[in-house]
Simulated scan of single mutants.
Amino acid sequence: MIEVELRVNGTAHRVELDPRVSLLDALREQLGLTGTKKGCNQGACGACTVLVDGDRIAACLALAVQYGGREITTIEGVAHPLQRAFVRTDGLQCGYCTPGQICSALGMLAEADAGMPSAVTEHLAEPRVTLSSAEVRERMSGNLCRCGAYNGITDAIREVAGARPGVSS
């Protein structure tokens, strides 16, 4: 067992962990933060997406001990207009994937703000990324929704992106 300090949603937690425990399992089982969901447990569905220092990661593939001292944000620590936009645009149905979708979308918006291109970015040298529907779908392709709420998810992200300076939709 190893003692690790996990900073989650602005609060430091000292936990004793087996070094093989995933960040997902530590969040859910040690800290009781069950908003982050376990889907495939293989990094293929995105249900477990959280933010670490603002970057999105699949928590099921990350060892918790690697993230000591870093700022981890789970859905429980998110208060963002994107959440209301998901409701307004019908970007959720059963809700299982929604925490991962929202955390991923926040990370994706930060990537777009930084001018990071995707596989469908038309002009790679442009400092400003236009978040078209195709661009959002490509950037969110690591997050699956069994209910098929992709149109609402895309609309919610584009709505919020359009309201932000520096990123156009």
Rank of each mutant, 00 (worst) to 15 (best):
T89Q: 15
R158V: 07
R164Q: 13
L124S: 12
A85D: 09
F86H: 06
S141V: 14
R139L: 00
E111S: 13
C147P: 08
G68N: 13
Q101Y: 01
E71T: 10
R84P: 00
S104E: 01
R164I: 10
P99Q: 09
L82V: 07
L144E: 06
Q83K: 12
V120K: 02
L124G: 12
P81K: 08
M116V: 15
S118R: 11
E111K: 13
D155M: 08
Q93G: 11
G95C: 05
S132N: 02
T130L: 13
G100C: 09
S118W: 01
G100P: 11
E76G: 07
Q83D: 00
L106Y: 04
G162H: 10
L124H: 09
G115E: 03
G69V: 09
I72N: 01
C145W: 00
R139T: 04
E76Y: 10
S133P: 01
P127H: 13
V136Q: 05
N151F: 08
V78P: 02
A125C: 10
P81G: 09
V120F: 01
P117G: 11
A114H: 10
V78N: 09
P99R: 14
G107K: 09
L131G: 06
A105N: 09
P99C: 05
F86Y: 06
V129S: 00
A119R: 12
